[in-house]
Design a protein around this nucleic acid. Structure first.
Lengths: 125, 125
DNA sequence: TAATTATTTAAGCAAATGCTTAAATATGCC
DNA sequence: GGCATATTTAAGCATTTGCTTAAATAATTA
């Protein structure tokens, strides 16, 4: 691996140095941030997050109904969201209520706005 | 598929109806938004986007150097970003310069801020 | 204690992802 | 035209993803 010619004679060494430095400083952030984005980057999970942004809490069974999917499929998505600290749970007898971990999801807030704005645009268009 | 008992006797029918309606209105947004998030949800691509946010333009070869990856690997990531309208290209003789499509990336701007803020926190901690 | 309900977990599988290596394009230079 | 450089494309392959079905937990009710 690694050697594909292209040792760019005219490489912008200054820029390369700069970029490497920037990555090094922000290093820690990329892993955690990209995994949050990857979680939100699935349409089903994005919908779940979006709904929980409004609804306070929903159980897996109702989510399956809402999204027209099987319960195990939903449950597996919820597990990922929980492992990523995006949602948390409250148990009430048999039912488990899922809600957003609002602390860890501040990052995603702009998206809700984006969805709503875009929806509005489409409606008025 | 589909029948996993759990036709929740105590299902919150009001909430279910609400949620279905909300999804229906915002329907169009979820597909496009989740695919942008999925693109940004890869650590390598997130770094590329982040760097392009500062650097105006970078060529594949320099990116490979900066990220310590092979050129084809980088090229394939860039292709995805271009297909997703996140980056655009400018050709100058042999070199192809990649830059952000600032119009289509407004959504991701909050993340750059997030990375920078978090980095600052880690530095001063 | 047995049957029902809500949820999770496990196993299996098709499709997608992200790399590798090698070959194909395309431009610049001698 | 022939060779070097910059990039893309293609083929191959291991890993991950996201579903399905079936089985395992856990709490509720009869």
């Amino acid at each position: 691996m690694e050697n594909n010619t292209c040792i760019r004679q005219f490489a912008d060494h200054e820029q390369i140095k700069n970029c490497k430095a920037k990555l090094k400083t922000a290093q820690k952030s990329f892993g955690s941030l990209s995994s949050v984005l990857a979680l939100a980057g699935n349409e089903v999970r994005l919908k779940i997050i979006y709904l929980l942004g409004d609804e306070k809490e929903i159980c897996p069974c109702d989510l399956a109904d809402i999204l027209g999917m099987s319960i195990p499929a939903i449950s597996q998505h919820l597990k990922k969201l929980k492992d990523g600290n995006i949602v948390e749970t409250r148990k009430e007898s048999q039912t488990i209520y899922y809600s957003l971990n609002h602390e860890n999801i501040k990052i995603l807030k702009p998206f809700f706005k984006h969805i709503n704005v875009q929806t509005l645009k489409l409606e008025t268009a």
